[in-house]
Design a protein around this nucleic acid. Structure first.
Lengths: 165, 165
DNA sequence: TATTGTTATACTCTATAACTATA
DNA sequence: TATAGTTATAGAGTATAACAATA
């Protein structure tokens, strides 16, 4: 355990020793991700979209007509769990399920006008959020993380793929 | 949209354009964290501990006698949500709540012998998991991430602290 | 037979409000 | 009055099994 002091020189709370968690990639990623999502939540409070909902709107806007399961797969969400997610966005009038002509089992997803309008505001909020982080981190640290994190993702994706064969 | 090919030269599924998510720190962190936790889950399947439970045992082992809320705070978990977590570990016989003498409102947390024994196995599994990641990433990328992620965490911690004052 | 979307279900995680017993 | 632990509760996120309609 370590005693630290705050800016005023008062003794701060005792900081417990985290042992192997300190150098654990998973632990570090979880803690940092939660912090970043807190900031995201603040930026998106007025808009009323959670990170996952935002990501769904983004993917549909940039790839209109994708099938439900394609969007789900692109975002790493199971088909099963994607249904209520799409339900919520559809009942808010932000997207439409259109019956596909080629394959009548599937729906093609499209944004409504309202969905596009909200997405415009959301994209601005997202950019402001990213710029806030960028100002905090500096370009060097930010760019390094944005280069390193996908590398880790890709390496693990191949590993997992190989393991599931 | 981009068409990619797999190793056999067969056309893989169409890869949707993720737009601003590609360079979103929050999105990147979330995806990578989930991948790393998948690997963690594989490593811990036989042991039967989830990441959070593991982290609780680690902190108690290295700081025996901490109060419940101190452990919760160290791990970024709310007191409220920490109760059932400690309940589950206590009912499995891995830790004990001991009534504090100085402050009879609080419990001091200690591992049982069985808790220590399981933690020994868990620490080995965790090390193997980290070493697997290290072998995949190489020392340079791994060390850079383990240096950069706490930096980001610390910068956001100060920001959030300032915002809540 | 396999796939798309769906329902039902269960467990974990997270968040808020309010209680109790101590301080 | 404030704090430590608790209860109750509700909303998300994630996971599996099984079904109908369609391919």
């Amino acid at each position: 355990m370590t005693n630290v002091q705050n800016a005023k020189g008062e003794p701060d709370a005792v900081v417990p020793d985290l042992g192997p968690l300190e150098s654990s990639l998973g632990y570090r990623l979880r803690r940092v991700q939660l912090r970043v999502f807190e900031d995201f939540a603040r930026a998106f409070a007025e808009i009323g979209l959670r990170p996952t909902q935002f990501s769904v709107l983004v993917v549909i806007a940039r790839n209109p007509g994708l099938r439900q399961s394609e969007v789900a797969h692109a975002l790493g969400i199971q088909r099963t769990n994607f249904v209520p997610l799409v339900d919520s966005l559809e009942s808010r009038g932000l997207l439409e399920r259109r019956l596909s002509q080629q394959d009548r089992r599937s729906y093609a997803l499209h944004l409504t006008e309202e969905g596009s309008a909200i997405l415009t505001r959301a994209l601005a909020a997202h950019q402001a959020h990213e710029e806030r982080l960028a100002a905090l981190l500096g370009p060097e640290l930010r760019n390094r993380l944005l280069a390193d994190l996908p590398k880790l993702d890709e390496l693990l994706r191949r590993e997992a793929g190989a393991a599931n064969r």
